[in-house]
Design a protein around this nucleic acid. Structure first.
Length: 227
DNA sequence: GCGACAG
DNA sequence: ATCTTGTCGC
């Protein structure tokens, strides 16, 4: 995958927030150009107390949910985890993983928020803008906003509102499990995002792409950190 | 000042 | 994010 835009990553918190506000203007909430077939999922893993990130990308076929390709990168980090600035910690490592990927996905599912973010620029939007590619944010919990209600049954969803606007949705992917937070990352609509995540979460709470990515990076971490 | 706070 | 077996509930 080719990076269409890049910038410095060694920034102060203030610089990072200003950059998010600036790049947020580039986010497009629009319909997909075509039905996606190759879906990518990304995730990051690391040992608490260490500064080594294991970033991974997997690409699966929407048809059979089978793995098409995977890529992993190991990278040192200096940026800490700060709510609202997650992308400045994880994206550099993910870019390395993407650079090893040969398959060109149609859309990317990211473990985190899209525009359901304080400055409407979560990691899913950040990655989408950098590669100018459709992305969807799939988080396990809310960063900002309030849901209209808590969906309880599979396939049911509730809009998430922040500053008077709908910024995402709480989607119940499995009856009996906590809902996931879906939001537009870039170049996709919320409706398409919800439908896609629901379709890809057939047997588990987490949709297959990010679920597989999570498994891949954890395997890499357990091997690469026990030497 | 207080509480909230993706991974 | 990660450390972890059994156990409560449908």
């Amino acid at each position: 995958m080719l990076l269409k835009l890049n910038h410095k990553w060694s920034l102060t918190e203030e610089e990072a927030r200003n950059l998010q506000a600036k790049l947020a203007k580039l986010v497009a909430e629009e319909k997909l150009p075509a039905d996606p077939e190759l879906i990518a999922g990304v995730d990051v893993s690391y040992n608490v107390g260490e500064n080594i990130l294991f970033a991974g990308v997997v690409v699966i076929s929407r048809r059979n949910l089978k793995l098409v390709e995977k890529a992993v990168a190991v990278k040192e980090v200096k940026f800490p985890y700060i709510p609202g600035l997650l992308s400045f910690r994880e994206t550099p490592a993910l870019i390395e993983a993407f650079s090893k990927l040969k398959t060109e996905p149609d859309i990317i599912l990211v473990d985190g928020q899209g525009i359901a973010h304080p400055r409407a620029f979560g990691i899913a939007s950040h990655i989408g803008v950098l590669y100018d590619k459709p992305t969807v944010g799939v988080a396990k919990s809310i960063l900002v906003g309030k849901p209209d209600f808590i969906p309880k049954n599979k396939g049911e969803f509730a809009f998430l509102r922040f500053n008077g606007k709908i910024v995402g949705a709480l989607l119940c992917t499995q009856t009996g499990s906590a809902p996931v937070v879906v939001s537009v990352g870039h170049k996709v609509t919320l409706e398409e995002s919800i439908n896609l995540v629901n379709e890809l979460a057939v047997h588990f709470r987490i949709p297959e792409p990010t679920r597989l990515a999570h498994i891949v990076v954890n395997e890499a971490r357990r091997k690469g950190s026990q030497e």
